[in-house]
Nucleic acid binder design. Structure first.
Length: 926
RNA sequence: GCGAGUGUAACCAAGAGGCCAAAGGUGACCGACUCAAGAUCGGUUCUCGUAGGAGUUCGCAGGUUCGAUUCCUGCCACUCGCACCA
C-alpha cells in the first residue's frame, strides 16, 4: 500500500502532544470534564478504552471550539482488593499468577514485586498512563495523583471535617456478613456461596416458660395477637443458654449466631425439643399458649423456635391441620387479626384450601406464604381492637412496643441458607460497633440532592429517573473500614475511610493537584483548604501567594461541566458525589452535568477479566492502530449504549480510515476552477458541519461520525460520479478537505494531525478552529436540482432493472407548465378536498377537464411521498427542470451509455410523456 | 423479587403517528480494474413484478386512530443496579 503507515504516524505525532494538553486558566471560556478514575489493579481492556476515549472526543471537540479544556486523570488506590491480590500472588495462587503473568503480561521480575500491594498499583498506573497516551487521550498529566498521596489524604481529612460538621457522619452499630474464621467482614466477591443473601431483621418475641425465656423469631411481630401456640422441632436438641445473664432456650445454631450479635452467650445445658412440647408458655400480648411439634421448624433459621399464627401463616395453618387430622389439639382454632381484600376471615386457611395443599411437606408452601404475606403487607389492616392500623405500620410499631416493654431484641439472619466464605467456613451476621455512617437517609440532605439533579444536565435523559430513584432509596452508608489502603478518619484514626467515600469531591482536587504536589502535606491544614475552596480567611495561612494562585485556579475550573461514568455507578458513586458536593460546596460550585455510559461486550459476551474474556487495549492499538480503536469505540454505538467489540468490524473501520486518508491526499490533485458541482458540494458541507457540531454538543459521537465521515464521503461519491471522465475535481476540494480533516480530528486525531500537516497547517489540528457554517455557502436550489437528478437516475435504473432490455436511447419529459400550476396549487392547498374546485375556476384548466383531475390525484400522491421540506421548497420556487436535465444530459448519457434527450412533455404525443409530473419527469426508454 | 432501561431486516444501528420497505455502517452476492487479491471502484441485498409498481414486515397479543415501527394495556426476552464492593 502506498498510504503512510499508521503506526509510524502515531510515533511521529505523539511527541507533538506530549505537553500540548496542559491548560492553565485563561480569560476565555473553560470546559472541564472528568471521568471516574481507574483502580489500577490490572491491565486496561478495550472497555476501559472507551470510557476514556469517548470523553476525549468531547474534550478535543470543545478545545477546537476555542474553550480552555481540562481533562485530568488520577488513580484510585484506596481499598482492599490489591491487598488480597498481593497475598494471593505471594502465596503462589495459580489463578492469580496466571491472570497477571499470562493475561496482563506482567514480566516475572515485576510480578515478584507484587507481594507489596503498592507495587501493583504503581505498575498498573504507569501502564494506564502509557496506554492512555498511546490512544491519543488528551489528558493533562501534570495533575496526576493517587489517593494515597499524603496531600490527598489531607484533602480527604478536610472533606470529612466538613461532612462531620454538617452532621452527615454518625456512629452506630451495623449488621454485616462476617466470617468467624477470617475474623473479617466479607463482601460479595469474598463469598463462595450465597452472594445474593440479604440480611433480614427478625424480632425475637420473648415467651416465658417458668423462669426461662423462649424467643421466637418473626418478621411479622404484629401477628402476636393471633398466636395460638409455639412450634418446636421434636427432632432437634435445643440448648439452654445464659444470654447477657438471662436464661434462654434456643437452637444450638442460634446460640452461636447470637454471640456475634452483641450478646454474651453461655451454654449451660441441653434440652430435647420433645421436652418442650405440650408445655405452656406465655406472652403479655397473647396470654398462655401451648408448645406444639412441627417438622418444618429449622434450627438453623434464627432462634430455631417459632410462634404460630395459623390464621395468617399458611405454614402454621397446615402444620396445625396436620396435627388435628391425627386427632390431636383439636381445641385450637385460628385467631384472625387482619382483614385483607380478596380474602375472607382466615386468609391462610383460604390460601391453603384454594391450592389444595395436602400437608406441610408440600413444596408450594413457600410460594403460598409469599402470597399471603405479600397481600397482607400491601393491603391488610389490623382489626380495630388491635389498633386498626395498616400491617405496614403495625409491623414497625408493634416491634418497637415489644423492644421497649416486653424484652424483645432484634436478631439478624440471612434470607437464604448456606452463605459460605472463600475460606470455606459459614458466614454469620455480626454487629459491628463504633461503625461510622454517612447519613444518606437524611431527608433534608436527600432533598438538596434531588434539587440539584433537577438542575443538572443528564445524558442520556432516561437516566434521570434512575438517579431520582437512587436518591430516594439510599440508606445510611457504612463509610469506614478496618483493612485496606486509604486515609484514616481524622477523629477516630482506628478507622479507614472506605473507597467509595473518599472519591467523591476529588474533581476539585484536580484543579490544583499540580500545585499541591509542590507543597508539603504538613502545611495542608483544613484552614488551607477552606481558603482555597471556600474562600474562608484564617490567620497564619502559609505560602499565601501560592494559595491565592490555587484559589484562582479552582474558581476558574469549578464547577466541573460534565462527569462521565459507566451506568453501573449510578446507584453509588455518581449519586454519592452529588451528596458530598451539596454538603461542602456553595451553589455556584455544584456539578453541572453527567454523562452515563453503556457497558462493553466482547464478541457478544460480557467482558470479564476473571473469565479471560477481555481484549487488552494495548493489544488492540498494536493490532489496529489507535485511531481505528478510537473510531470503532465511539462510532459503533452512542456512548450510553452498550457496544460490542468484534475484530472483523474493527478491521473494516481501519479500511475506512485508510480510505479517508487516501481521498484527502488525492484531493490535493484537483486543478480545475470551481463550478456548480463544487457549489453543490459546498452547500451540502454546511449541513454536515451543522449536524456534526450539534451531535457532538450532545455527546452523540456515533451520530457525529455518521455526518462527518459517511455523510461527506457519500457526497464525494456523487460528486465524482458527476464529474466528467478524467477530471480529478476542482481546487475547491482542498478547501473541503481542510474542513473534513478538522471535523474528524476529535475522533481520529493521529490521522488528522498528519493530514493537517500535509494540507499545510502550521499548528496542531488539535487546536485548529472548528469549522463553522457559512450561510452564504448554502444554495438550496442547487441541492434541490441535484436531488431531482439523483432521483431521476434512480428511477431510470429501477426501470432498466425490470424491463431488462438493452436501451438504445432515453428520453426525459419534463412536466408542462400547467401541471406545475396544478402541483403548486395542490402542494399549497390547506384543504385537499376543495383544491380541484379552486383550480377549475381557471378557464384554461376547465378546458383540459379530466386531465386536470387526474393530475391533481397524481400530485397528491407524489406530494405525500416527498419529504415536507422539499415540498416547501417546491411551493416557493419550482425548479426549471428543462435546464437542469439539459445541463446534465452529458452526465446521463455517460451513466447509461446511450444518448439522452430532454423534452417538454407538453410538446410530445408519446403515451408515457403524459405521466410527467413536476419533480418526477416521465422517462421513456427505447 | 424490586427499581431503571432495551427489543427494528443476516449483524450493528437510525427512525417516535401519514415523508417508511424503513438512513448509515458491516457482512454477503454480482460486476469493473487486475497475473491475482483479504486492496480499490460501481451495483444488488423482505417477497413478487418485462416501466418507475404491488404485497407482507419493525419481540408477542390486544386496543386507540381514516391511518401505528411510532400512542395505550398485558405478556415474553435481554441488560444494568439492589449496598459497604471497585
Amino acid at each position: 500500500m502506498s498510504s503512510p503507515d499508521m503506526r509510524q504516524i502515531e510515533r511521529d505525532i505523539l511527541p507533538l502532544w506530549e505537553h500540548a494538553f496542559e491548560p492553565d486558566p485563561t480569560d476565555g471560556e473553560k470546559f472541564y470534564l472528568t471521568v471516574a478514575y481507574p483502580y489500577p489493579s490490572g491491565a486496561m481492556h478495550v472497555g476501559h478504552g472507551r470510557t476514556y476515549i469517548a470523553p476525549d472526543v468531547i474534550a478535543r471537540f470543545w478545545r477546537m471550539r476555542g474553550r480552555t479544556v481540562l481533562y485530568p486523570m488520577a488513580f484510585h488506590v484506596t481499598g482492599a482488593p490489591v491487598i488480597g491480590i498481593s497475598k494471593r500472588i505471594a502465596r503462589g495462587d495459580p489463578k492469580a499468577v496466571s491472570l497477571y503473568r499470562d493475561l496482563y503480561k506482567v514480566p516475572d521480575d515485576v510480578l515478584a514485586q507484587f507481594v507489596d500491594p503498592l507495587a501493583i498499583v504503581r505498575h498498573f498506573s504507569e501502564e494506564y498512563q502509557r496506554v492512555m497516551s498511546s490512544c491519543g487521550i488528551s489528558i493533562d498529566w501534570r495533575r496526576r495523583f493517587t489517593t494515597v498521596d499524603p496531600q490527598y489524604s489531607k484533602f480527604i481529612e478536610w472533606q470529612w471535617k466538613h461532612l462531620r460538621e454538617g452532621n452527615h457522619v454518625l456512629k452506630g452499630a451495623h449488621p454485616v456478613r462476617y466470617c468467624p474464621q477470617c475474623d473479617n467482614p466479607v463482601g460479595d466477591h469474598d463469598l463462595l456461596e450465597g452472594d445474593k443473601a440479604e440480611i433480614l431483621k427478625f424480632t425475637l418475641v420473648m415467651f416465658r416458660w417458668n423462669d426461662t425465656f423462649i424467643p421466637t423469631a418473626t418478621l411479622r411481630p404484629e401477628t402476636i395477637y393471633g398466636v395460638t401456640n409455639l412450634w418446636v422441632n421434636p427432632e432437634v436438641t435445643y440448648v439452654r443458654i445464659l444470654l447477657d445473664g438471662a436464661p434462654w432456650i434456643v437452637s444450638r445454631e442460634a446460640a452461636e449466631k447470637l454471640s456475634f450479635q452483641d450478646h454474651t452467650v453461655e451454654i449451660t445445658g441441653e434440652i430435647p425439643g420433645t421436652d418442650l412440647i405440650d408445655q405452656t408458655v406465655s406472652h403479655p400480648l397473647c396470654g398462655d399458649v401451648p408448645v406444639l411439634p412441627a417438622r418444618f421448624v429449622d434450627p438453623d433459621m434464627a432462634s430455631g423456635i417459632v410462634m404460630s399464627v395459623p390464621a395468617h401463616a399458611p405454614f402454621d395453618y397446615i402444620a396445625l391441620r396436620d396435627l388435628q387430622t391425627e386427632g390431636k389439639y383439636t381445641g385450637i382454632e385460628p385467631v384472625p387479626l387482619i382483614t385483607v381484600p380478596g380474602y375472607g376471615t382466615v386468609p391462610a386457611k383460604e390460601a391453603v384450601e384454594r391450592a389444595g395443599v395436602a400437608n406441610q411437606d408440600d413444596p408450594r408452601m413457600e410460594a403460598l406464604t409469599q402470597e399471603v404475606y405479600g397481600a397482607e403487607f400491601a393491603h391488610g389492616r389490623l382489626f380495630d381492637r388491635y389498633g386498626g392500623s395498616s400491617v405496614r405500620e403495625a409491623r414497625d410499631s408493634v416491634a418497637s412496643l415489644m423492644m421497649d416493654q416486653y424484652g424483645s431484641v432484634p436478631m439478624y439472619e440471612f434470607d437464604t441458607r448456606s452463605v459460605v466464605c472463600r475460606c470455606g467456613s459459614n458466614v454469620v451476621v455480626k454487629i459491628l460497633h463504633d461503625q461510622w455512617f454517612l447519613q444518606y437517609s437524611d431527608p433534608a440532605w436527600k432533598a438538596q440532592v434531588t434539587g440539584l439533579i433537577g438542575r443538572m444536565d443528564l445524558v442520556p435523559p432516561e437516566v434521570r429517573a434512575e438517579f431520582e430513584r437512587t436518591v430516594d432509596w439510599l440508606k445510611d452508608w457504612a463509610c469506614t473500614r478496618r483493612v485496606g489502603l486509604g486515609t484514616r478518619l481524622p477523629w477516630d484514626p482506628d478507622w479507614l475511610i472506605e473507597p467509595l467515600s473518599d472519591s467523591t469531591v476529588y474533581m476539585a482536587y484536580y484543579t490544583i493537584a499540580h500545585h499541591l504536589a509542590t507543597v508539603s502535606a504538613d502545611l495542608l491544614t483544613p484552614e488551607v483548604f477552606d481558603y482555597i475552596y471556600l474562600g474562608k480567611e484564617a490567620s497564619g495561612l502559609p505560602e499565601r501567594e501560592k494559595l491565592d494562585l490555587m484559589r484562582k485556579e479552582f474558581l476558574f475550573w469549578y464547577p466541573y461541566d460534565f462527569r462521565f461514568s459507566a451506568k453501573d455507578l449510578i446507584s453509588n458513586h455518581l449519586t454519592f458525589q452529588l451528596f458530598h458536593h451539596v454538603a461542602i460546596f456553595p451553589e455556584p460550585c455544584l456539578p453541572r452535568g453527567m454523562v452515563v455510559f453503556g457497558m462493553g461486550l466482547l464478541n457478544g459476551a460480557k467482558m470479564s477479566s476473571s473469565k479471560g474474556n477481555v481484549f487488552l487495549l494495548e493489544d488492540a492499538v498494536d493490532e489496529f492502530g489507535a485511531d481505528t480503536v478510537r473510531m470503532f469505540l465511539v462510532g459503533s454505538a452512542e456512548p450510553w449504549q452498550d457496544f460490542d467489540w468484534r475484530n472483523e468490524l474493527v478491521s473494516s473501520t481501519r479500511k475506512q480510515i485508510d480510505r479517508f486518508m487516501n481521498t484527502v491526499l488525492e484531493c490535493q490533485a484537483g486543478q480545475e476552477s470551481a463550478g456548480n458541482l463544487d457549489r453543490w458540494l459546498q452547500s451540502r458541507l454546511q449541513g454536515h458541519i451543522a449536524r456534526t457540531t450539534e451531535a457532538l454538543e450532545r455527546f452523540q459521537t456515533r451520530q457525529a461520525l455518521q455526518e462527518a465521515f459517511f455523510g461527506i464521503e457519500s457526497d464525494l461519491k456523487w460528486y465524482r460520479r458527476r464529474l466528467p471522465a478524467g477530471s480529478a475535481g476542482s481546487l475547491y476540494l482542498k478547501e473541503l478537505c481542510s474542513v473534513w480533516v478538522r471535523l474528524l480530528a476529535p475522533v481520529i486525531p493521529f490521522t488528522c494531525e498528519y493530514l493537517w500537516k500535509e494540507l499545510g497547517g502550521d499548528d496542531l489540528v488539535s487546536y485548529a478552529p472548528w469549522p463553522v457554517t457559512g450561510p452564504a455557502a448554502v444554495d438550496s436550489r442547487l441541492e434541490l436540482a441535484e436531488d431531482l437528478l439523483a432521483r431521476t437516475v434512480e428511477d431510470i435504473e429501477s426501470i432498466l432493472k425490470i424491463i431488462q432490455i438493452v436501451p438504445s436511447a432515453i428520453a426525459i419529459y419534463t412536466a408542462p407548465s400547467w401541471k406545475k400550476r396544478v402541483f403548486s396549487a395542490v402542494a399549497a392547498a390547506e384543504n385537499k378536498n376543495t383544491v380541484v374546485r379552486e383550480i377549475m375556476k381557471d378557464e384554461e384548466m376547465r378546458k383540459r377537464g379530466k386531465e386536470v383531475t387526474d393530475t391533481v390525484r397524481q400530485c397528491t400522491t407524489l406530494i405525500h411521498r416527498l419529504p415536507p421540506q422539499i415540498i416547501q421548497q417546491l411551493i416557493d420556487d419550482l425548479p426549471d427542470e428543462g435546464a437542469i436535465f439539459s445541463a446534465a444530459a452529458g452526465f446521463l448519457s455517460k451513466e447509461f451509455s446511450v444518448p439522452v434527450s430532454v423534452r417538454d412533455a407538453g410538446e410530445s404525443s408519446h403515451a408515457k410523456a403524459a405521466l410527467a409530473l413536476p419533480f418526477k419527469p416521465a422517462i421513456v426508454i427505447e
